[in-house]
Nucleic acid binder design. Structure first.
Lengths: 355, 355
DNA sequence: ATGAAAGCGCTAACAC
DNA sequence: GTGTTAGCGCTTTCAT
């Protein structure tokens, strides 16, 4: 028959086994484990040897139950495969493990229900910090629930960290690590405007998404500063995906001929835009300028290389952990990281100006 | 003074608080939580109401300690940002959460030491399954340690799952979920060979990596079947990265002029290759055919769209969880998922044959 | 410096 | 059906 477990006793050794083998008491073993209390070198050695011999490892659950801290941070994202999230994840994981923490990964697939459920789950786990990544919904009911979770997490000794989304209000016990959406969007729009573009399409308008709100604010402010009116019919709704970018671009091409620049909501959207443009024989940047947002690695691989807004994803993740774990040290509960545009090859002045 | 009421002292409510408020015993509460035992509807209602009122959530650690299963699977990867890993991660996370499991994320950054340390950590956590993703090192010492971990994990009720790497041997208590590297490599090489290519460069040869070993086997077998000798000087060492691909390609171009096709070890490498080729003015596929391995999303975004070997990443992740959790149900401890080539636009017959 | 005793919050036999 | 009685493996007072 196919082998089963090579185990006979199937039980893992406990601290008691170690104590017995070493000929000391259980608390003594606990002390050498924690290393915080004085233990006679000789005893210590015996214990260590016993542990090695039994191949002992502590039971993290027992330890957590008995009061020691949990040593885990939870990480709640939309979808690990989003290049956006992946880099934040890397930052989180790096900082967490450098602080000796484990990292719980949960995904929500853009479902607010699931997001809330997951936060609940984290409460069961006593995660030291619960980091929720990505844009939030504008829905007041949703905000209310999030506020509630901030409170209950706080009460049970956890910290809610909002990463890449706005604060829930002054009095809510949550940490926010955000980046400057509005500023990046403003800079990019101004860049386009100053190149001479007047009909700029914003592609990938997510209704009720904090990210969109913030970026639109920058978009509008830049237009205002340049005395250019925003053409509301050029604010195109759609998802943050390549497929959606391609789709939206096709429609745009079919319906409008006055647009000279496309501001894609994300680099992913821009990738789809570029593809649709190429398929339609529209040259970039000669016939159409295209810019994105995020500065994911893909951006520099596209043809032409994409001019976009850089977001410090990885650092965002690190800060989230740092602040989530280190609160109270400083009153520093709020951080906004800067963004800046990265100029590559996808923007040129509009045709009528280019000669 | 009276203690107990957790609602007031800021501690999280326990099952005891719920029992008290509902006027029942602790085990009764436990029963409605578990839902596996008969409880009078009326009692049940009272308990539920009390839980809601106190905003109670179980303590996962206490539950784990008391014997109930841990409900977590661990996921050990090289680097979350690798597009390769991200999709496996998605599969793992999906299947895990659909089975009500939490997902622990650990990264190793290609460091065998850290990989082993992480497996140790997982032992403390009592993860039900520990999924180690990606190629392994050929080093016998490394294999020995992995075997050891398979054994200790097994002894403590966990299961080691090797995902995307070969088995450690028949008698090792580990599950393996692999994909057909050799077959995919064979198919691709044969495809190139049958298109007329005779001087094929294998780019990104990783010394001592199981992945490379397997792919080389397919590469060689195809050559043998076509009676073409493998030019050993065309097996170029390098990392699985875009930068490395670019670098290797530059060198190749500088030193050889007889190569008509490049088999990049991964799509990432291929992306670098393509870039270097474009920079050198070499047209793809007219002057040089290029193929990759993995079929990550990037592959179809490249110009030209990359012909590559498809690896079912996401399903790999799902199977890993399924098998890791479901062992003993079937003796099914070993699975190899198929691979197949995806033909896009980066291959053409070599020039001297193309007219 | 070390041991004894008392839980942490929960589940799991057993009774009733 | 429901309550009683025991722990799960560990950390912490508190003695000594």
């Amino acid at each position: 028959m196919p082998k089963k477990s090579s185990t006979e006793n199937g039980k893992r050794p406990t601290i008691r086994d170690v104590a017995a083998l070493a000929g000391v008491s259980v608390p003594t073993v606990s002390r050498v484990l924690a290393g915080n209390y004085p233990v006679a070198p000789a005893t210590r050695a015996k214990v260590l040897r016993a542990m090695r011999e039994l191949d002992y490892v502590v039971n993290a659950h027992a330890r957590a139950l008995a009061g020691a801290t949990t040593k885990t941070v939870a990480f709640v994202v939309d979808d690990v495969t989003g290049p956006f999230y992946a880099f934040i994840a890397r930052g989180v994981e790096q900082e967490a493990s450098s602080q000796g923490r484990l990292c719980l990964l949960c995904t929500t697939h853009g479902d607010p229900e699931r997001e809330l459920a997951v936060v609940e789950l984290m409460r069961e786990q006593h995660a030291e910090a619960v980091i929720v990544v990505g844009g939030a919904w504008d829905d007041p009911k949703y905000a209310e629930r999030m506020r509630y979770f901030a409170t209950v997490l706080d009460k049970s000794g956890s910290r809610l960290v909002l990463c890449g989304r706005p604060s829930l209000g002054e009095d809510v016990p949550a940490t926010v690590v955000h980046y400057d959406n509005e500023g990046g969007s403003y800079a990019m729009t101004a860049y386009l405007l100053s190149a001479g573009h007047r009909k700029i399409c914003y592609m990938g308008f997510g209704v009720g998404l904090s990210t969109t709100d913030e970026r639109m604010a920058g978009f509008r402010r830049a237009h205002a500063d340049y005395d250019v009116e925003v053409d509301e019919s050029l604010l195109i709704h759609g998802h943050f995906s390549k497929a959606s970018g391609r789709e939206m671009t096709r429609h745009l091409l079919a319906e409008r001929s006055d647009v000279t620049a496309i501001f894609a909501a994300t680099d992913m959207v821009a990738a789809g835009t570029l593809k649709a443009l190429r398929e339609a024989g529209v040259r970039v940047p000669e016939d159409m300028s295209v810019v994105g947002f995020d500065d994911i690695p893909l951006a520099s691989d596209l043809t032409p290389a994409l001019t976009t807004v850089h977001v410090p994803h990885e650092q965002l993740g690190k800060e989230a952990v740092r602040l989530g774990l280190g609160r109270s040290e400083t009153g520093d509960d709020q951080v906004v990281l800067g963004t800046h545009i990265v100029v590559r090859d996808s923007v040129a002045p509009p045709k009528h100006l280019s000669h």
